[in-house]
């Protein structure tokens, strides 16, 4: 909070922040959960993370957001942790196997 910004900045610092935000908003709008339930869970994650260190509102904030969403979707049986981990590994493998500059696509799994 040292430097209060006076100019308009990017809405999201990193593409994945935008992506996880949009994913959550979309799931809410599609009726998979109430926003108040989400906010309560997210608030609890922030509180827990905030005990260990002072959160900066940037990367810390979206790390807590992602962790909350993963837990939330697992609980509601919308995205099983094992499936998510397998796809994460598949994406990593795809990046490693793709020549620099070429589009990265996931082989059908």
């Amino acid at each position: 909070m040292k430097d209060a910004p006076t100019v308009q900045e990017h809405a999201f610092e990193e593409p994945w922040h935008a992506q996880v935000f949009a994913l959550t908003v979309h799931l809410n709008e599609a009726g998979h959960f109430e926003w108040s339930d989400w906010a309560e869970r997210f608030g609890a994650t922030l509180k827990r993370h905030g005990l260990a260190k002072e959160l900066n509102g940037g990367a810390d904030y979206f790390a807590a957001w992602l962790e909350t969403l993963e837990g939330f979707l697992a609980e509601r049986e919308l995205a099983a942790p094992g499936d998510v981990a397998a796809l994460r590994a598949a994406w990593e493998a795809a990046y490693r196997a793709t020549p620099h500059g070429a589009p990265v696509t996931l082989a059908d799994a």
């Binding site: 990193e14 593409p15 994945w16 992506q19 996880v20 994913l23 799931l27 979206f62 790390a63 992602l66 969403l69 993963e70 979707l73 919308l78 995205a79 499936d83 998510v84 981990a85 397998a86 796809l87 994460r88 598949a90 994406w91 990593e92 990046y95 490693r96 196997a97 793709t98 020549p99 620099h100 500059g101 070429a102 990265v104 996931l106």
Partner: peptide, 23 residues
């Protein structure tokens, strides 16, 4: 720039991609 493979996204970025793909 001699890297053979595409720039690997960060761990959280990969996790978000995984969620998005699954859903």
């Amino acid at each position: 720039h001699d890297d053979p493979h595409a720039l690997l996204p960060s761990d959280p970025a990969l996790r978000v991609k995984a969620l998005e793909t699954l859903l």
